[in-house]
C-alpha cells in the first residue's frame, strides 16, 4: 500500500535523524524526553467518569489523584446513584453486590482497577468480581446491572443491559491480543 511506503519514508527520515545525533561509540542515545508532564486524563474502571460524575466536576475527577478521589467524590457518587436508579433510591435499596448507594458510591469513587496476580482476571464472570478487565468482558452490562439491577440483578431489565454482548472481531490468543484493525 501507498501509505506504508510513505510511513517507511518517515521512519527512514527518523532513523537518519537519530544517526546524526548518535554518540561516537555508536550506542544509540535516547531522544530528549525532558520536561514536566501534567495529567490530562486518567482512567481506572471503564466509564465511571461518564456515568457517575456530575456535570461540572468531570474535569476535576480526571485530575484528582485516586487516593483523594474517595474523599472528594464518594458522596457525589452516592447521590448520583440514588437519583439515577430507583433501585438504589434509599439506604435499604441494595444492588447485586449487597451494597446500597452510599456504600457502592464509596467503592467506585476511588477509580482504580483491581487486578489479581494469583487467580482469574475478569471484570465479572459470574463468580469473580473486579479482579481485572479482559478484552472480552461485557463491562457496560456489568456496571448497568450493578446500578439498575437491584438486589437480584433484574429489577429494571430495560436499563440493566445494553444488549451488545461481545466485540465484533475475535481477539488474538497471543500478544498483542487486540485484533488487527479494520
Amino acid at each position: 500500500m501507498k501509505y506504508i511506503k510513505i510511513l517507511s519514508l518517515v521512519f527512514l527520515a527518523a532513523f537518519t535523524l537519530q544517526n546524526c545525533s548518535d554518540d561516537e561509540d555508536n550506542t544509540p542515545t535516547l531522544p530528549d524526553f525532558s520536561g514536566t508532564f501534567t495529567t490530562a486524563d486518567q482512567m481506572g474502571r471503564p466509564a465511571i467518569n461518564t456515568v457517575l460524575v456530575t456535570d461540572g466536576r468531570k474535569d476535576a475527577f480526571n485530575t484528582t489523584v485516586p487516593s483523594q478521589q474517595g474523599a472528594a467524590f464518594a458522596s457525589d457518587f452516592a447521590t448520583r446513584l440514588s437519583t439515577l436508579s430507583p433501585t438504589l433510591a434509599t439506604d435499604d435499596d441494595r444492588n447485586l453486590l449487597g451494597l446500597n448507594a452510599t456504600e457502592f458510591g464509596g467503592v467506585l469513587a476511588t477509580d482504580v482497577l483491581t487486578v489479581s496476580l494469583d487467580g482469574t482476571t475478569t471484570f465479572f464472570d459470574g463468580t469473580n468480581v473486579l479482579t481485572g478487565r479482559n478484552l472480552s468482558d461485557d463491562v457496560i452490562t456489568t456496571e448497568l446491572t450493578l446500578i439498575f439491577g437491584g438486589e437480584d440483578g433484574s429489577e429494571i431489565p430495560t436499563l440493566s443491559d445494553d444488549n451488545v454482548d461481545a466485540n465484533d472481531k475475535a481477539f488474538l490468543t497471543v500478544f498483542p491480543y487486540l485484533a488487527e484493525p479494520f
Partner: peptide, 15 residues
C-alpha cells in the same frame, strides 16, 4: 504524513 516527508530532510539537516 505529507509534511513529514517534506520536512524529513529539513529536520535532518537541522539536527
Amino acid at each position: 504524513i505529507k509534511t513529514f516527508i517534506f520536512c524529513g530532510f529539513i529536520f535532518q539537516i537541522c539536527s
